[in-house]
């Protein structure tokens, strides 16, 4: 069987690349952590990979707003060898049927570059604004999975428990039409939920005031997925914030399911 190859891009403030790559490997993929400058100088090519990971962090310090400078980089910076932009390379990667996962800062980059919701690709239609609390917060949240979502990363899941760690995670749309389109297409694969795993607008279960409690969305193909919570941070059962209270420790961390789904999907197509 063909080996699934994952690429985790880092550099300029990304900081979750190590655990993201670890999760990819544990899920059965080969995984490379590559500095974005290696992509820009042409020594690493997206065509050699199947699974692109945009990890969490503070790209360029989020100084002009989260991932704002990254969206400029993807749109304007050119690859030395080909003269093409990173955005064009990523579009080709998507056209080849490959998959992309953006977590936290990576999700922010996906929406700000218009890769999500991706209709049309490249147009920014949704965003992630300051949390209503105006605070960066690290806390674990319950997530309800939309079983009808085309998202290939959440297949077979009905709920997740993961940490959020962000100051700018409030999902907003440019207008109601966009929100309707997301609802109709079941693109909001993940929603912040209360103790009964029902989507909620109550703080802190909904940690940022996200519209419609949206925590993560995919594109219409389900192959591009972005979420604020960190699945890679629940890579081991002892990441659970109250694992010492569990009678029995599960075999693995719940976040691994996202990566395992990714690898399973790719095994089916390559």
């Amino acid at each position: 069987m063909a080996q699934i190859k994952a690429l985790v891009i880092t550099g300029f403030g990304t900081n979750c690349e190590m655990e993201m790559s670890h999760a990819c490997r544990r899920a059965g993929a080969l995984s490379d952590v590559v500095h974005i400058s290696d992509v820009l100088n042409g020594s690493t090519r997206l065509t050699d990979y199947h699974f692109l990971n945009l990890a969490g962090g503070f790209l360029d310090g989020d100084d002009l707003g989260s991932a704002q400078v990254e969206s400029v980089r993807l749109k304007y910076a050119r690859i030395q060898t080909s003269g093409r932009t990173l955005f064009e390379e990523i579009r080709d990667f998507i056209d080849r049927g490959m998959i992309i996962l953006g977590v936290c800062n990576g999700f922010q980059a996906l929406v700000k570059t218009g890769l999500l919701p991706g209709n049309p690709m490249g147009k920014r239609r949704v965003s992630l604004s300051f949390n209503d609390s105006a605070k960066f917060e690290d806390r674990w949240v319950r997530l309800a999975v939309d079983p009808q979502s085309p998202c290939i990363f959440t297949r077979g899941l009905d709920r997740l428990f993961l940490p959020v760690r962000h100051g700018e995670g409030k999902f907003v749309c440019d207008n109601n039409g966009t929100l309707e389109e997301i609802k109709d297409g079941h693109l909001a694969a993940l929603k912040y939920a209360d103790e009964s795993y029902t989507p909620t607008m109550e703080y802190p279960a909904n940690p940022n005031g996200a519209v419609d409690a949206i925590a993560g969305i995919c594109d219409a193909t389900g192959r591009i997925f972005g979420l604020m919570p960190h699945p890679e941070a629940f890579n081991h059962p002892a990441n659970h914030p109250a694992w010492t209270r569990l009678k029995e420790l599960p075999e693995k961390g719940e976040g691994m399911a996202i990566f395992e789904n990714a690898v399973d999907f790719l095994k089916g197509i390559i």
Partner: peptide
């Protein structure tokens, strides 16, 4: 809460339990 206490993915006993 305002400090990220689990980046790098290896947290086992967190500051709040």
């Amino acid at each position: 809460r305002q400090y990220d206490h689990e980046v790098q993915g290896g947290s086992v006993v967190k500051p709040l339990v």
